[in-house]
Amino acid sequence: PDEFRDPLMDTLMTDPVRLPSGTIMDRSIILRHLLNSPTDPFNRQTLTESMLEPVPELKEQIQAWMREKQN
C-alpha cells in the first residue's frame, strides 16, 4: 500500500518516523539524508535525528501486512 512506502525513495518502510513537518519517512532513509544535509528534504527546515518521532502504530501495521504477504 502507498501509505507504507517512503515518500522520498518509494520503498517499503520498516521503521517509520514522523518529521516535524508531519511527513512520515523510513528512519534509515532520513538518517542517510541527514548525513549530507541537516534539513527536512521536503521543506528545507532544520532537522536533526532527535526531532524524528517514531510511529509505532504504522510500524505494526507494516509488519502485520508483511506477515500476511508471507503466508
Rank of each mutant, 00 (worst) to 15 (best):
E3D: 11
T46H: 15
L34I: 10
N43Y: 03
E57D: 12
P54T: 03
L34Y: 02
I24N: 01
L47E: 04
N36I: 09
H33R: 08
I30E: 05
S21L: 03
N36Q: 12
I30S: 03
L34C: 04
D10N: 10
L58S: 06
V17R: 02
M13W: 01
D6K: 01
R27G: 01
I30A: 09
S28L: 03
L31R: 12
L8R: 02
I30K: 00
T39R: 10
A64S: 13
D15G: 01
E49I: 13
L19W: 00
R32Y: 03
L35Y: 09
Q63D: 13
S37W: 02
K69Q: 14
N36R: 15
T46C: 11
K69M: 11
P54L: 00
I29W: 05
K69P: 09
P16Q: 07
L12A: 05
E68V: 12
I29R: 02
H33N: 02
L8H: 04
R27S: 02
L35D: 15
K69W: 05
T48P: 01
K69V: 10
L31C: 12
E3C: 06
R18S: 06
P20R: 04
L19R: 01
S50T: 13
L35G: 14
K69G: 13
Q61T: 07
Q70F: 06
D40I: 04
N71Y: 14
I30N: 03
I62W: 01
S21Y: 01
R67M: 08
L31M: 08
E49N: 15
D2G: 13
L8P: 08
N71M: 14
N36E: 13
S21H: 02
R27D: 06
H33E: 08
H33V: 03
E3N: 08
S50E: 15
D2C: 11
W65F: 10
R32M: 14
R44L: 13
T39E: 12
L19K: 03
L12Q: 07
T23Y: 11
P1N: 14
M25F: 09
M13F: 05
L58G: 06
L12P: 13
L47Q: 02
R32P: 00
A64L: 10
I24S: 01
S50W: 08
T23R: 14
M51S: 08
T14R: 10
I29Y: 05
R18M: 09
I24C: 04
T11N: 12
N71S: 13
P7E: 05
T46S: 12
F42Y: 10
M13V: 07
H33W: 13
M9N: 15
T23L: 12
M9H: 09
F42T: 05
G22K: 00
D6C: 01
N36T: 14
D26E: 12
N36K: 13
P16G: 02
Q45Y: 04
P1G: 07
P1Y: 09
V55L: 11
S21T: 06
N43G: 08
G22S: 02
P16Y: 01
L35M: 13
R67C: 10
D6V: 01
D6G: 01
L58P: 00
M9Y: 12
E68I: 02
L19C: 05
P54M: 01
F42I: 12
L19A: 01
S21Q: 06
V55E: 08
P56R: 05
E3Y: 10
T48C: 08
L8S: 02
R32Q: 14
D10S: 08
M66F: 12
S37K: 01
D6M: 00
L34F: 10
T11P: 05
P7F: 03
E3Q: 07
Q45M: 13
N43I: 00
L47T: 04
P56L: 04
E49H: 01
L58Y: 02
L12E: 10
T39G: 02
D40C: 03
E53A: 11
P38K: 15
T14I: 14
A64Q: 13
G22E: 04
G22W: 01
N36H: 14
T46F: 15
T48W: 05
T14Q: 14
P38F: 15
M66P: 03
H33P: 04
T39A: 08
D15T: 09
R27W: 00
R32T: 15
P54A: 05
T14V: 11
P1E: 04
D40M: 00
L31K: 10
A64K: 11
D26H: 03
M51F: 05
F4Q: 05
E57F: 09
P20V: 00
N36C: 11
Q61K: 14
R18Y: 01
L12H: 04
D2N: 11
M13R: 01
G22I: 02
I29M: 03
E57R: 11
Q45S: 12
L8G: 05
L12I: 14
P7C: 02
S28M: 12
M51L: 09
R32A: 13
P1M: 10
E68N: 05
P38T: 12
N43M: 05
D10R: 11
P16S: 01
P20S: 00
E49F: 03
P20M: 00
S28V: 10
T46Y: 11
M9S: 14
N71H: 13
L52N: 01
L52C: 06
S50C: 02
N36A: 09
I62G: 05
V17F: 12
P7I: 04
P41I: 07
L47R: 00
L12F: 10
L31E: 15
I29Q: 11
P7S: 06
L52M: 05
M66E: 15
P54Q: 05
D40Y: 05
R67G: 12
